[in-house]
Design a protein around this nucleic acid. Structure first.
Lengths: 347, 347
DNA sequence: CTGAAAGCGCTTACAG
DNA sequence: CTGAAAGCGCTTACAG
């Protein structure tokens, strides 16, 4: 028995299996092991040696060490995703899509905050120390992107208004905002409030501006005091609404458009507590069409946004970029559609 | 001008700043740079040299490369967390707690699936190639842990029944189950159904067994055909309930206890579609007390589980372990409490 | 087809 | 207090 194989009583951690150990066992060099382990053997390693190495790998349970590999190659096999809020089910759907498309070749590393804000560029730059193969940034604001100035492959998600120089997969939120305006106008509303997100992400700007423009064209008014913004959080939205409601009511507001379903849930919650009738006294709409919008009371009228698909397409684009391919059409825009439910429609 | 400094027109990626570059600028060795950059200078680097190095670091914008550092030290500065389902808001809360406690010293790497099952041990082992400083495993099943057999610091979350040999932070779900049984018995129910999760995690076993035992003691019956299990998913739970309801009704079931709020939402949804009165015809309870349980219709009676605290405490334990400290009391158990709402109580 | 060797960027005994 | 040097595990020209 080799001395180093002597079992240690207190520390039963088995020795890390290295390429050198595999090489010795197979009677080849580590270069050959590397080629076989990375699937680059064909045409460069003899069939007999390949078999020898594969056997040794299996017998020893060898796995390529990603730290060593990353250092040698200059990049790791991780993909970093920057997203504002993991506790928001919408981002969870996006992430699910990303994971699905990424497969097992790349490890997904999440840089998220809990406050609904994007992580600081400073913080994200630390993650860059992990030498990711690529970067995915969901719902960025212009400053973040500027400060980050990351090298290498990057794809933006839900990031309208960043031009076509950086690859992006967007959602047609403007179309959704138009649909809301049309629906509210058709159901007789003339004075409407807008509850925005305060993250500073451009997608919120587009939602709001598209709605305001459409509302004006349709002859609906959105009084300045009826335009407020909060963090993407049920409780905070509820509070903001509770404070604002008296003045809204005075102004004749009969509907409120929210930048996200989460904001809308806050209104639903506060309305129930305060005895405000939805949709009788106040109609409510959201963006996202989260699963809970079907089960809420009443059901929430919301712009359906294909989160899972958003993540999937973005990851696919990134994979192409990493592979060094040229991207064809940029940016990609995914369709949205309005789901009408009880929060805007009397039963 | 040094040749390598010549600006390249097409590739504006600035050269990675290395410790060697800092060392040259400061007129010291890389060993000294390493000491200063890692805060290990005191008593080992002269004050004058420390200042020189700090200046060079700032001027060059040097950041320690975590790949090189990890390789040299044998461990990285990442902590891997294994969780069954990122789209479940409960896990999102747990993760938020973990992040809060971990701070910026360690990067949190999430190994999650989307199906509500734990990732395969195989898959997680690949993440181990990143040489994490520690491991956090949420709601494991016994097999997973056995297959994983990971070395190094590890803390389990919501993992009752794993003995005291591996550090864990648990939730007092048994207490919650008792509270549900008592509440249902007190409100007159005698025949009850149980909708379980099918993940195989021990925390679900404990919830169910504790409830069944308490129900029996209180003289409530839980017919075998009224004990079913599904994945943690609103739609799947709704389907399972739709199929089971006729036989439950025949058996006299007037309440259903769900292993998670997510399961309960499925019942709420299907009940509304099928015109089943909640709680008149059927009372419903859950575990988790997610934010949506306040806004659902009716509000959901649920066992409040401190998810954020769970994550925070687990991360704190792990940090101690990584620092080589001994853990005092093991396992830690966090209290739960029953939140009674409209799904079990007539207005 | 194959292996010796250099190199990725860092940390840590070690000798001075 | 300081630096030369070895080493972490791997990959990749390069010479044969």
């Amino acid at each position: 028995m080799h001395p180093s194989e002597k079992p240690r009583a207190s520390a039963p951690i088995r020795r890390r299996v290295t390429a050198a150990m595999v090489a010795e066992r197979a009677g080849v060099s580590t270069a050959t092991v590397s080629l076989v382990a990375n699937g680059k053997a064909s045409g460069r390693v003899s069939a007999s040696n390949e078999i020898l190495v594969r056997e040794a790998i299996r017998e020893l349970g060898y796995v390529v060490d990603s730290i060593g590999s990353s250092l040698a190659r200059g990049v790791s096999n991780t993909v970093i995703m920057v997203a504002p809020d993991i506790s928001n089910p919408f981002f969870a759907m996006v992430i699910a899509g990303v994971r699905a498309a990424l497969g097992s070749e790349y490890q997904l590393l999440l840089s998220v905050t809990d406050a609904g804000q994007l992580p600081s560029a400073e913080n994200t730059r630390r993650l860059l120390g992990l030498r990711p193969a690529g970067l995915l940034v969901d719902a960025p604001d212009p400053t973040f992107l500027q400060e980050l100035s990351a090298p290498g492959p990057m794809v933006l998600l839900d990031a309208p208004g960043f031009g076509s120089d950086v690859p992006a997969v967007n959602l047609d939120v403007a179309q959704g905002a138009l649909a809301i305006a049309a629906h509210l106008s058709a159901t007789g509303h003339t004075t409407v409030a807008y509850l925005d997100g305060d993250t500073g992400t451009t997608t919120f700007d587009v939602r709001r501006e598209a709605f305001l423009t459409a509302a004006e064209e349709l002859g609906m008014s959105v009084p300045p005091e009826a335009q407020i913004a909060t963090t993407i959080n049920v409780g905070l939205a509820a509070n903001a609404f509770a404070t604002a409601w008296p003045s809204w009511k005075k102004a004749g507001v009969t509907a409120v458009v929210c930048a996200t379903d989460t904001h809308a849930y806050g209104i639903l919650q506060e309305a129930r507590a305060a005895g405000i009738l939805i949709p009788g006294e106040l109609a409510v709409t959201g963006f996202d069409d989260l699963p809970y919008s079907t089960t809420s009371s009443p059901g929430l009228t919301s712009v359906h946004l294909p989160g899972e698909l958003l993540g999937r397409r973005a990851a696919e684009q990134l994979l192409s970029l990493i592979a060094g391919e040229e991207l064809e059409q940029q940016p990609i825009t995914l369709e949205s559609s309005l789901m009408v439910r009880g929060s805007t429609l009397e039963p």
